[in-house]
Design a protein around this nucleic acid. Structure first.
Length: 311
DNA sequence: CACTTCTGTAGAGATGGTGA
DNA sequence: TCACCATCTCTACAGAAGTG
């Protein structure tokens, strides 16, 4: 049992392992709380699973998978793709530096707003255009060239994305995609949704710890303890390590548990009482035998609260 | 209120080189 | 080998951002 610095939290790798062994087959069978499709699973119109178009689609859209409802994001992205007038957005070859400013920028921004693909118009357009330009400039508009150049080693691919800089301003070339959550998420989607099987070293890709993974991890007692007034940021690393430790020696890896945890929280743990832990879905929850009572409150500020223990 | 990135700051600890 | 110093890396932390 490892303690978090500054916070009184404990990691229970045995519980993580047990939860994974429970949830992974449950997701494959009937789903978690009746859900098994991920928001990114549905194919855009006329796109073949695993095709270059599909890989580009996932690569571009996942960079906007933050601070919003994922189901809506991917639905809006498919709507944007279905319209011949806005489909160009998904082809990096169509982008150039001059789209970062002026009239051409305004058009991209407007086209991204048409079906609500962007939620924060300027920020999202900036991320989108920058990533498209970098893909075109450095990788011939083909993400697979990044994979090949790094021998399909997922860890090296993520490092490559993280360290890539623009030649002009030496700022990051891949916005959001280089982040600790979205990078691993991207790899997971390429494997599970696009069906790319060539990736290596996936066991060393960390768990993408978003709000849902964090909440499900705490609700099931993979991390327990008493703490108040902390930020989610400050326990992300601990949760990542908890899953790394939990899956060591298992035939599964942290990325294998991601989808199940996401469903578990989105359709279950989110509805727990924030103080008592009472959950109206407990009777039909696939993880009910692991569910802990007690406070789990994860607002966006620094007022997170946790008070759980193993009975 | 949901959500996670960005920039920026600070401190701890690791690393590497120098001179005695 | 030790003491010292500069530099780097990692982690924690805080505030800002913005639409539905």
């Amino acid at each position: 049992m490892e303690k978090a610095k500054g916070l009184n939290l404990q990691v229970h790798a045995d519980r993580g392992r047990k939860l994974a062994d429970m949830l992974i087959p449950a997701l494959a069978d009937g789903g978690i709380l009746g859900h098994k499709e991920m928001p990114e699973d549905a194919l855009p119109e006329g796109v073949e699973k695993g095709s270059l178009e599909h890989i580009r689609f996932i690569t571009m859209v996942v960079a906007l998978d933050y601070m919003r409802d994922a189901n809506a994001l991917w639905r809006h992205a498919r709507d944007t793709y279905a319209d011949p007038g806005t489909r160009y957005l998904f082809n990096p070859s169509e982008f150039s530096e001059d789209m970062l400013h002026g009239a051409r920028y305004a058009k991209v921004r407007a086209d991204m707003e048409k079906y609500s693909l962007s939620q924060k118009s300027d920020r999202d357009a900036g991320i989108w255009i920058r990533n498209a330009i970098s893909l075109k400039r450095d990788w011939g508009s083909n993400p697979c060239k990044i994979f090949k150049a790094n021998g399909w080693d997922a860890v090296k691919i993520l490092e490559c994305i993280r360290d890539a800089k623009n030649p002009e301003d030496h700022k990051p070339a891949f916005l959001n995609l280089k982040g600790e959550k979205i990078g691993p998420l991207w790899i997971r989607m390429l494997r599970d949704s696009a069906g790319l099987e060539e990736f290596k070293n996936l066991e060393d890709v960390p768990m993408p710890v978003d709000i849902h993974v964090a909440r499900a991890t705490l609700a099931c007692g993979v991390v327990t303890g008493s703490a108040e007034g902390f930020r989610l940021d400050s326990i992300r690393g601990l949760i990542r390590n908890a899953w790394k430790e939990s899956m060591e020696g298992s035939e599964n890896i942290p990325l294998d548990v991601d989808e199940a945890l996401w469903h578990l929280s989105k359709y279950g743990c989110t509805h727990r009482d924030k103080e008592t832990g009472d959950c109206r879905h407990i009777k039909r929850c696939e993880a009910r035998s692991m569910c802990l009572r007690g406070a789990i409150h994860l607002p966006n500020g620094k007022n997170c609260k946790l008070n759980t223990h193993i009975p």
